[in-house]
Measured scan of single mutants.
Amino acid sequence: MQRVNMIMAESPGLITICLLGYLLSAECTVFLDHENANKILNRPKRYNSGKLEEFVQGNLERECMEEKCSFEEAREVFENTERTTEFWKQYVDGDQCESNPCLNGGSCKDDINSYECWCPFGFEGKNCELDVTCNIKNGRCEQFCKNSADNKVVCSCTEGYRLAENQKSCEPAVPFPCGRVSVSQTSKLTRAETVFPDVDYVNSTEAETILDNITQSTQSFNDFTRVVGGEDAKPGQFPWQVVLNGKVDAFCGGSIVNEKWIVTAAHCVETGVKITVVAGEHNIEETEHTEQKRNVIRIIPHHNYNAAINKYNHDIALLELDEPLVLNSYVTPICIADKEYTNIFLKFGSGYVSGWGRVFHKGRSALVLQYLRVPLVDRATCLRSTKFTIYNNMFCAGFHEGGRDSCQGDSGGPHVTEVEGTSFLTGIISWGEECAMKGKYGIYTKVSRYVNWIKEKTKLT
């Protein structure tokens, strides 16, 4: 034993070699072989497995989906700052455009905790909710729209109204504003409101030439003092309507412009014939205590009207009353817009006519005020429907199939267009061939041609 100890002390290297040989010859039971080890760690190889990531292109799944990435790591994937920024906006807080917040056709661009709407022409605001041009839906104005110097929408209202708090709607500024039905039992019968379409306001006024200088022999019209197929109006439903009495009662109609003036057809009036105007009328054979009678003290036909040349060209006249009318729910003026808007309103496509005229061709006159909704007829169809001249200051309205029309005794009465609950004068009943005849239409004086003249002559002093 002493000898062994001496050998170990003198030859430590020998001992180490012996131990190493023993270990190498022993069977290893701690580690699995290569094949079995792979069965336990069965993990798919990654895209760049075996390579240094710093030297390969980034992978979106590896960089940002398996674990949260930084902007720089995302930049490695896209290799483009702009594309990385677009991805980053949604990656950080989701897609803010998912709810489609942009209105009126706006395009949404996502941002971090926010979004941006790219608005089409005519709109602005956070969600493109603000109209900035009158060309689109009248700028959301209830009545009139004008573009300011910086191309912003400025709404306005006709006389007797003021802008509401929203700067879009119009509200009454006087007790009985024009064009409004205020009798409670008839307010439910107000005709369907007309909503502004998209309009090209630059070209809204037709490029028409008034044929002022045409000389033409007097034409022989049949029954051209021209509501057939209409309905009984309720008291106060058309408070701007008046009836004219002269040699015979209810020979023509008219509309209240203001307390002192009536507008009617020029062919209705004769110099030297006494005319009485009755406002607030409903049943011409009954006294309903809503009527107001006034005498006409002055007749002003349009300066281009000449019955000797043509009885229905420039067929418009103004009547001055001896005493002002007292405005109330049964006696209310009709609204008159400017030339541009009167023309736009007419193009809405349908209007209402009213009167006490004959209820059928050569038949009896109506006792109760009649009204009828009539569609506008395109000019080409209008011209083809008659052998008589249709001037540019006239328009056609009615039904091709016949059966409904204005008729004798309705002449001078109103053709009105309702705009968001307020009625505007767009025409004056003038003439036609018979009444409600198939293929024939009622012919009306186009008020847009005469609004400046009306307003100039009827100013209240």
Results as ranks from 00 to 15, higher is better:
residue 98 E to D: 10
residue 214 I to T: 15
residue 58 G to H: 05
residue 319 L to N: 01
residue 189 L to N: 15
residue 131 D to Q: 14
residue 58 G to R: 00
residue 111 D to F: 11
residue 275 I to F: 11
residue 44 P to V: 15
residue 143 Q to N: 02
residue 306 N to E: 06
residue 41 L to R: 04
residue 274 K to Q: 10
residue 443 I to P: 03
residue 265 A to T: 04
residue 302 H to L: 01
residue 216 Q to C: 07
residue 62 R to G: 02
residue 143 Q to L: 02
residue 371 Y to T: 14
residue 84 T to V: 05
residue 86 E to C: 04
residue 346 L to V: 06
residue 107 S to E: 13
residue 197 P to V: 12
residue 262 I to S: 00
residue 414 P to Q: 15
residue 214 I to R: 09
residue 386 T to N: 11
residue 253 G to R: 10
residue 148 S to F: 07
residue 8 M to G: 14
residue 129 E to M: 04
residue 294 R to P: 01
residue 160 G to I: 01
residue 233 A to P: 08
residue 235 P to Y: 07
residue 417 T to Y: 02
residue 403 G to P: 15
residue 327 L to N: 01
residue 243 V to K: 10
residue 436 A to D: 11
residue 268 C to D: 00
residue 230 G to R: 10
residue 123 F to I: 07
residue 266 A to P: 01
residue 427 G to P: 00
residue 129 E to I: 04
residue 25 S to D: 09
residue 370 Q to K: 11
residue 443 I to F: 06
residue 142 E to K: 09
residue 184 S to D: 15
residue 346 L to T: 07
residue 235 P to E: 07
residue 384 R to C: 04
residue 228 V to I: 14
residue 386 T to Y: 11
residue 80 N to K: 05
residue 250 A to L: 09
residue 294 R to A: 03
residue 460 L to I: 08
residue 417 T to D: 03
residue 167 Q to W: 08
residue 435 C to P: 04
residue 279 A to H: 01
residue 115 Y to H: 06
residue 423 S to I: 05
residue 216 Q to W: 10
residue 114 S to K: 07
residue 223 D to G: 09
residue 118 W to I: 15
residue 338 D to S: 10
residue 421 G to K: 09
residue 289 H to C: 09
residue 150 D to F: 09
residue 125 G to E: 03
residue 417 T to C: 04
residue 382 C to R: 03
residue 168 K to E: 07
residue 433 E to M: 07
residue 107 S to R: 10
residue 172 P to F: 05
residue 349 G to S: 07
residue 318 L to K: 00
residue 9 A to K: 08
residue 431 W to Q: 15
residue 371 Y to A: 14
residue 398 G to M: 05
residue 225 T to K: 11
residue 442 G to E: 04
residue 240 W to P: 00
residue 457 K to Y: 12
residue 39 K to I: 10
residue 317 A to Q: 00
residue 43 R to G: 01
residue 349 G to C: 03
residue 158 T to G: 05
residue 237 Q to R: 06
residue 164 A to L: 08
residue 422 T to H: 03
residue 370 Q to G: 08
residue 318 L to A: 03
residue 266 A to T: 02
residue 279 A to D: 00
residue 218 T to R: 09
residue 104 N to K: 04
residue 372 L to M: 13
residue 76 E to D: 03
residue 209 T to M: 14
residue 245 N to Y: 12
residue 198 D to A: 12
residue 400 H to N: 09
residue 211 L to R: 06
residue 8 M to I: 15
residue 198 D to C: 06
residue 215 T to G: 07
residue 238 F to A: 05
residue 374 V to T: 06
residue 200 D to Q: 09
residue 153 V to M: 10
residue 326 V to N: 08
residue 201 Y to G: 13
residue 103 L to F: 07
residue 69 C to W: 00
residue 401 E to P: 14
residue 107 S to D: 12
residue 274 K to H: 12
residue 368 V to Q: 15
residue 402 G to H: 07
residue 386 T to P: 04
residue 441 Y to E: 00
residue 293 K to D: 04
residue 153 V to E: 05
residue 18 C to Y: 08
residue 93 D to R: 13
residue 384 R to D: 08
residue 178 C to I: 01
residue 354 S to F: 07
residue 411 S to E: 13
residue 372 L to H: 15
residue 114 S to I: 07
residue 445 T to V: 10
residue 371 Y to H: 11
residue 406 S to G: 15
residue 445 T to P: 00
residue 431 W to V: 13
residue 421 G to E: 05
residue 428 I to C: 01
residue 403 G to R: 06
residue 38 N to F: 10
residue 359 V to F: 11
residue 113 N to W: 05
residue 300 I to E: 05
residue 274 K to S: 08
residue 303 H to G: 07
residue 343 N to Y: 04
residue 280 G to C: 02
residue 68 K to L: 07
residue 47 Y to K: 04
residue 301 P to Q: 12
residue 80 N to H: 06
residue 233 A to M: 08
residue 32 L to P: 04
residue 443 I to A: 05
residue 360 F to N: 15
residue 374 V to Y: 02
residue 135 N to D: 15
residue 44 P to Q: 10
residue 90 Q to S: 14
residue 102 C to K: 02
residue 362 K to N: 13
residue 393 N to A: 05
